[in-house]
C-alpha cells in the first residue's frame, strides 16, 4: 500500500488501483456528512480535484493521485458518508482507477514513511 501527502492511500488490486483516505485523515476531518464522487469513466489528471468530502467542520477536496481513468466508484458513500469514519482503510474506499503510468506510484510513501510523515 502507498500513501500520498494528501492523506490518500493507494492499493493495487489486480490491474486497478483502489484509492481512499487514511484513518489519520478521517480522524482529522471529523464526522463525514457528504461525499461527492467522480464520474465513472472520467479521465483524470494527477493532482486534479476529483472528489469532495464534507465533514461537520468543512469541505475538503480529494486529488487524483495518478493520471488515468476512473473505472468504478463506491456509490455506498453517497448514501452512508459516515462509513468514511467507521472504516476509512477498508469498506470506505472512494474509487478504483486504471493508471495510465503505474510508475507514478513509485513517488508515494510506504506505510512506515507515511506514519513518520504524520508524526
Amino acid at each position: 500500500m502507498k500513501f500520498t501527502e494528501e492523506h490518500e492511500w493507494l492499493r493495487v488490486e489486480d490491474d486497478l488501483i483502489v484509492v481512499g483516505i487514511t484513518s489519520h485523515a478521517a480522524e482529522q476531518l471529523g464526522d463525514v456528512v457528504f461525499v461527492e464522487l467522480p464520474d465513472q469513466g472520467a479521465e483524470v489528471t494527477k493532482d486534479e480535484d476529483i472528489c469532495v468530502i464534507e465533514s461537520v467542520k468543512a469541505a475538503s477536496d480529494i486529488l487524483a493521485p495518478l493520471d488515468g481513468e476512473i473505472v468504478e466508484v463506491n456509490a455506498m458513500l453517497e448514501e452512508e458518508p459516515g462509513k468514511v469514519n467507521d472504516d476509512p482503510m477498508g469498506e470506505a474506499w472512494f474509487f478504483k482507477m486504471k493508471a495510465a503510468d503505474p510508475s507514478q506510484m513509485d513517488d508515494y510513501m510506504d506505510e512506515a514513511a507515511y506514519n513518520k510523515f504524520i508524526g
Binding site: 456528512v33 457528504f34 461527492e36 469532495v52 464534507e54 469541505a59 458518508p81
Partner: peptide, 9 residues
C-alpha cells in the same frame, strides 16, 4: 433546506 445531501456553507 438543501434538497440534496451537500451542505451549503
Amino acid at each position: 433546506v438543501p434538497s440534496g445531501r451537500a451542505p451549503m456553507r
